[in-house]
Design a protein around this nucleic acid. Structure first.
Lengths: 227, 227
DNA sequence: CCTGTCAGAATTGGATCCAATGTTCAATTG
DNA sequence: CAATTGAACATTGGATCCAATTCTGACAGG
């Protein structure tokens, strides 16, 4: 069991609706890593991946290169690619980045938010209340946060923020395991939305910081009691 | 004149001291883009690049993929790669990211800094006073900032910060053109180092924020008076 | 004179083949 | 018996070749 059998299902469902084979491989592999189906430390053999995807080794190589640039795997010349390990330190690292980026994005976004975004954010919160699947939950959580940020006229900052939020998906499973799916800190989310709606930027940022801090603490505690 | 003749000199001096051809092409192209030798909007023809580097098209393709992931060029399927344009909006975007990341990195680093780092930072400041070449200046500036951050036990945050500092190199030429090379805000740098040495974190962060804000304003003004 | 269409050229995406490097394991020697 | 060396194997890096897509420009039709 090398993790490739895990991939088979994902590959089948992803279908061939991508522009290029490289994009197909890249998107599928990233989803597999972020969702935890490909665990940290898994070595990725180009030949095997090519066979699993039904393409040649070349699009696999290009996809691996891009995933390396996204820090999702470690690439050593002539040795191969390995899925980046997750750890307590890495989780703390990711949270430090989110704690830096997201308050900035929120601050720059709030003046430009409209009822359109507020409505979408509220809808997403309701969807999250109903959602059971952890994978979908990560997607909804990411979209809720990004909806509040996306009015900021800073595309690169937004792209960075979204990429970090995606990285966090790798830890969401542990987070849910630690706290139970009941409260994904939905009160924090609703308070933050209310503060943004009232254009109370300092309060919204304060809630966001607390939200991230408690989440980071939860994860740290979870990692602590299992070495 | 397609910019490739510009590359020839860089390629020659870079030599073959890289692990792989892909790494060689990637490093050289990135340096050429960041230093401005490859201007924004330049289309990158794989065949021409391969000929210029003396390799086949394949390492060029892989290098382009990685540079795309670093947002240094735009990649459109079946159309090709184009060096990302720089603009006032993009500059403001980059500064917003630096303003978010660097204070966080500095805050996390200051408690762990030792005399080793302080000494290196001071040396770098002296080197900057003596430096004439704009390219080297960017390198020194980046290393000075990173020296003050690198004690933070957050490798991913540091990698992100360094990559953003590199992106800023593309704007350094304009910055120097606008203010003159005499003062790269060396007073700010010295004050920041002094505050860090005194473990006065709030003050160091305050100086850093002001440093970045004035730099951003200088660049914005420069862009404003030339469309 | 303008516009739409179609054919040829240019360019990139993908596959296969060969070369270079790293790893592993067994045999030999101290 | 342990350490070391070297040879065979596995895996990745690079080159060449073929296929798919897009752009260019000319020509016919309105």
């Amino acid at each position: 069991m090398n993790g490739l059998t895990e991939l088979a299902a994902v590959i089948a469902e992803a279908g061939g609706r991508h522009r290029t084979a490289t994009a197909f491989v890249e998107a599928t592999l990233r989803a597999a890593i972020l969702s935890g189906r490909l665990a940290g430390g898994t070595p990725l053999r180009q030949e095997d991946l090519a066979a699993a995807f039904g393409v040649s080794r070349m699009p696999v190589r290009e996809a691996l290169r891009q995933l390396e640039a996204q820090a999702l795997l470690d690439f050593v010349p002539h040795k191969g690619a390995v899925v980046t390990e997750i750890s307590a330190a890495d989780a703390a690292d990711t949270y430090a980045i989110r704690m830096a980026l997201e308050p900035a994005a929120l601050t720059l976004s709030i003046p430009h938010l409209t009822e359109v975004e507020f409505g979408r954010a509220a809808d997403l919160l309701n969807d999250m209340d109903a959602e059971e699947d952890p994978g979908r939950m990560g997607e909804l959580n990411r979209r809720f946060h990004m909806t509040l940020y996306e009015a900021a006229p800073h595309p690169k900052l937004l792209a960075l923020t979204e990429s970090q939020l995606s990285s966090f998906d790798r830890y969401l499973r542990f987070h849910l395991a630690a706290k139970g799916r009941e409260h994904m800190s939905q009160e924090d989310h609703r308070d933050m939305l209310a503060a943004a709606r009232a254009r109370d930027c300092p309060r919204a940022v304060e809630i966001l910081r607390g939200h991230l801090a408690t989440a980071a603490a939860t994860l740290a505690a979870f990692f602590a009691l299992r070495g």
